[in-house]
Design a binder for these strands. Structure first.
Lengths: 63, 63
DNA sequence: CTCTAATGTAAAGCGACCTTGTCATTATGA
DNA sequence: TCATAATGACAAGGTCGCTTTACATTAGAG
C-alpha cells in the first residue's frame, strides 16, 4: 500500500510533527506510515483524507 | 465508523461466507465488520471497495 | 562552528484486527 | 419434521497499529 503523504505534507509546508498534531497521533506514527512501515487504521486514513481535503483513494494506492 | 456492508451484500445476493471468500478473509471477520464490532484494516477496506466497485467513502462513513 | 529543528529508528507495552475452532439461534426447503 | 444454510457470538492466539521514551543523524540558521 503506497501513499503520497510525503509529497502532500511538503506541498503544505508541514513537518511530520505539524501533521501529527493535526491528526492527533504521534510524530512516530506519521513517520512510520510515510516510510511505509505500516498502513494506518481506516479511521486514521479518513482523518488524513480530511486534513488534505482529498479522497482516500487519492492518497493511498493499492501497492 | 458506520458502513453499508449489509445492504451492499444483500444487493448482490451474497452470504457473509460468499463475501468472505471474495475478500480472502474469514466469515467471522465479515460478520464483525458488518456488525460494527471493529473497523477493517485499510488494505481490507480497499479490497471491499474493489469487490463492490465503489470508492471507500461510499461504503464506510465517518460515524 | 554551534544550536536547534527535523527526521529516522528502536524497544516495550497495549489494544485492535484477523485467524481457527466451536456453539447457539434462526430461517428455509425437501 | 429433519436437515442444512445462514447468522451471531465467544475464546485463544498471532500480528499490526499506535503509544511513550529515548537516542542518533541530518540540515539549516545565525
Amino acid at each position: 500500500m503506497n501513499n503520497r503523504l510525503r509529497v502532500l505534507r511538503a506541498e503544505h509546508g508541514w513537518s511530520q510533527q505539524d501533521l501529527a498534531d493535526r491528526l492527533g497521533v504521534s510524530r512516530q506514527s506519521v513517520n512510520a506510515i510515510e516510510k511505509g512501515r505500516y498502513d494506518p487504521s481506516l479511521p486514521l486514513a479518513f482523518s488524513i483524507a480530511d486534513v488534505f481535503g482529498l479522497p482516500i483513494e487519492a492518497i493511498f494506492l493499492r501497492d
